[in-house]
Design a protein around this nucleic acid. Structure first.
Lengths: 344, 344
DNA sequence: GCGGTCTTGGAAAGCGGTTTCTAAAGCCGT
DNA sequence: ACGGCTTTAGAAACCGCTTTCCAAGACCGC
């Protein structure tokens, strides 16, 4: 078991000083071609790799981007993660992934870990329950991360104000929901059930808001009986539609605040003998890979997931003062498929 | 902008030496309760967090587990990643995620990066094109990682032999495919089309092998015309089934080597006016979240994705000699749904 | 041939911890 | 009161790299 070689071993073998080896490897400092070759040969000979920790310790950056999200399997998060990972790689960074499952304590712990790691950027992804406790917590995080040298990015989560030391990369939840609802409205639907998410969650509150605004724009009175809430899983969607059906309230269309709930709802409608889209039209949100495979293929609000992730990393890594508190809002569009039918 | 405090600042504030602070934080060495309290107060006062790189540098472990996989969004990988992340957190490790998109050069680079990082474990996930080049590459990786102090884990990928310095955590591809095919066979189907993956890929070769073995066990002759290959995406599944249909070969059932291809195939069958399962039965593989939402709900081979990931981490972190080259094989089972119908 | 830039390479001081080695207290029995 | 043993705490030597500061050659015009 030969110990792992150090830069000293390389220097010795190449017959130069450690400083020279370091400079050859970093590539910035001018080194005579001859010397460079000798060093590179020695590196290959010993199969030497630098020690990232030693490098990070002595002033350089850690070259790590941290991604903090609810979980890793929900398509919404997975696709954002994909974008983050892509851009991190592009920028020669490694990508640290942590999940919170919605637990604030866990989140606190993760932020602490990230301060320890000196991550170049810490990206917090996805909607949250917005309240004073949250704001205060975020403020502490931001300060801690700032003087650990990390950039904080809020991704798919509203900004906490222009003075808040974080970059925000959002997509237009209100606009997307407005479009989706408008799409149903302009197809003649007036009784549109809303399958909403947890109350207080920034993402789902915004989607509900877009729904409201669209109704208003079309001068359709809002019927609270049409609005339900769930945890946005497939089972929740199934149950929500069942309740709606059982309650006897009439509706000809459904706007589900995400595709998973939409899928569950379609199953529920089918179970109740309702045909989609002949009896009930339905539109989802997120445009996950599942959407086109459902029967009928689900019309859904398409989000620029990957771009969201890429942009978050790009902005965070962009050096220069002032760049530390930007706010970007990306647009959405509707992916039209077969689950919506105009009302006669 | 107050600089981030060091252990020295804490020591000064608490009126003790840095050694003492270090010991209080590590928690192993005996420290008088009084001193401990003073130190903890100072830590809180300064909002001090250790520098992970400094800690890693001075002998301790890096507390990082690296996960290397094809991509981050395919449910197969996402669920394994979920298990890895879960167990890593459980073991107080952070989780570094890298994707290769099948590029061997990228993989090589990642392994180098992991050597630099001194990851506690490096987990390579998913099937690969098995050939001599691959074996040789793996051998180099294994050696390099070994004397960087990292454990190498092959997850969902066959072992390279008992002497190979790596842990292997597999699931039974042959067995799963055997069961799936047998399920169709015992339902009376004899003409079973196979939607296979890339030739040479360990995962899909094994699934094809299980298909063959099942036919053999039922003494059903294998018809090469029923076997197709694709890249296992939804489009591939769609195209493969179209070709099959166009070629005129008869079949009453389809075994798709993953759910994505199965979904595409179902779409293709529907487009061709074939009803599932009335005209054609179909069974998938991986049991992704999409499976129960398809119409009809797709019967599929369920894999212990999460457990695979958890086991990989658990074994890798288990210290003790000899534990460095274990081999675990997890089982699969069929999730019965509505896409298979007995032939009269 | 000489003083003065430009290159090139080395010595050494950190970076922020952990850990070994050592010394000062504190406790005990006699 | 004193020697010996156990706790507890400090000094200092690393861990492996980057980078600043310097010095020695190389090269130049005159």
């Amino acid at each position: 078991m030969n110990k792992r070689p150090t830069i000293r071993d390389v220097a010795a073998l190449a017959g130069v000083s450690v400083a020279t080896v370091s400079r050859v490897l970093s590539g910035d400092y001018p080194v005579a071609g001859n010397t460079r070759t000798k060093v590179q040969r020695a590196v290959r000979e010993l199969d030497y790799v630098v020690n990232a920790h030693a490098r990070a310790l002595s002033g350089a950056t850690s070259n790590v981007v941290a991604l903090v999200m609810y979980d890793v399997v929900t398509p919404f998060f997975a696709h954002i993660a994909s974008g983050v990972e892509y851009q991190a790689t592009e920028s020669d960074r490694l990508c640290l992934v942590c999940t919170t499952h919605g637990d604030p304590d866990r989140e606190l712990e993760i932020v602490k870990l990230m301060r320890e790691q000196h991550a170049d950027a810490v990206i917090l992804v996805g909607g949250v329950l917005m309240n004073d406790d949250y704001r205060e917590r975020m403020y502490r995080y931001a300060k801690g991360l700032e003087d650990a040298g990390s950039r904080l990015v809020l991704c798919g989560r509203p900004s906490l104000g222009p003075d808040f030391p974080a970059i925000t990369v959002e997509y237009d939840n209100v606009g997307g929901a407005f479009s989706a609802t408008s799409h149903l409205l302009s197809s003649g639907h007036r009784r549109i059930a809303m399958l909403g998410g947890p109350v207080g969650n920034t993402t789902f509150d915004a989607r509900l808001d877009g729904y409201r605004k669209a109704l208003e724009a079309f001068r359709v009175p809002l019927d609270p009986a049409l609005i339900t809430h769930g945890d946005m899983g497939q089972e929740a969607g199934f149950r929500q539609i069942q309740q709606l059906l059982a309650s006897g309230v009439e509706f000809t269309a459904v706007f589900a605040a995400n595709d998973l709930a939409a899928a569950g709802a379609m199953r529920g409608l089918r179970a109740a003998g309702k045909r989609v889209p002949d009896d009930v039209s339905i539109i989802g949100y997120d445009d996950t890979p599942m959407a086109p495979e459902l029967t009928p293929a689900l019309t859904s609000v398409h989000l620029p997931h990957e771009e969201l992730g890429r942009t978050a990393v790009k902005l965070a890594l962009q050096r220069g003062e002032g760049s530390a508190r930007q706010h970007v809002m990306l647009g959405t569009h509707i992916a039209m498929r077969d689950s919506v039918r105009p009302l006669i």
